[in-house]
Each structure stands twice: as structure tokens, then as C-alpha cells.
Amino acid sequence: MMIWDDIFLEVDFWINIVSIALIVIGIYGIVFSQHLLRMVFGLGLLEAGVNILLVKAGYQKEAIAPIVTQASDTMMSNILAATAQMVDPVPQAMVLTAIVIAAGVQALALSLVIRIYKKYGTLDSHVLFLAMERDRHLSLNQKD
């Protein structure tokens, strides 16, 4: 029982659970759903889960945010002592990049969804796939 108590009170455990849940729900949304909007939302969840894992990689126990706050203290040795206790800034920068990329891709996906809905009046992927095949056959035979 004690072991389980320890595990459930760990922050680490819950962060893992949340990120895995986001990733799995996202993959479910992309792979198994028939609705185009749900696919886009699934993509958003997936990216969020991966980003949590990435930013988690930079965390250090009992470390502080990577910002030098004592600005008046210009002694280089003091600054170095402060920065040695800071968390890793690199994953934070990478996650910032990844978030912006994900935002761009999702906006693009949404605009495609708008276009498809205007064209076909439905967002069911099976119906759309059939419509695409039909269009292809029409265009192949119509060229003559």
C-alpha cells in the first residue's frame, strides 16, 4: 500500500498520465474519427501532449526559473552561482517553437476544413473520400 501511496502522490506520475492521455486521445481523434473537425482537434491534443513531455525534460529538482532577477548584483560570481541552480532553458525555447509551428499547422488545417465544407457540404471523411474518387473519375473521362 505504501508504494502505491508514494506513486500516486508523485507529481511526475500525474504529468506522465496527463501527457499520455492527451497523446492517446489525439491519436484516437486523428486515426479513428470520421469527422474532419475532430481530426483537427485531435491534432491539437496530440501536440499538447508531446509538448508537455518536451518541456518536462528541462525540469530540475529544487531549481528556479531561468531568469536573473537580482539585477543590481553585478558580481559575476554571484550571477554564476544563481544560474547554476536554474532549470534547463533549452526545452522551453524548443517548446515555444513547437507551439508556434503547431498553431500554424492547425490554422492551415482549419482553413482547409472550411473550404471542403463549402465545396461538399459535409465533413464526413468517408463520404468525402468517395466524392474525391468520383471527381477523379469524372475529370479523367471528361478531358476528351
Binding site: D12, K56, G58, Y59, Q60, P66, D88
Partner: peptide, 23 residues
């Protein structure tokens, strides 16, 4: 994912950057 224990990443590059970024 579980073996990635929170707060014990090796931080190879991070330490170097923390030490030299202000300079």
C-alpha cells in the same frame, strides 16, 4: 515514458548554456 524521472535530466547542454549565457 515512465523511466524519465522528473527533475533528473542530464542537462548536458543546459548547464553549459546556463553558465555562459549571461556573459
Amino acid at each position: 515514458i515512465t523511466p524519465l524521472v522528473l527533475g533528473q535530466s542530464p542537462m548536458l547542454v543546459g548547464k553549459l548554456i546556463n553558465a555562459s549565457a549571461v556573459n
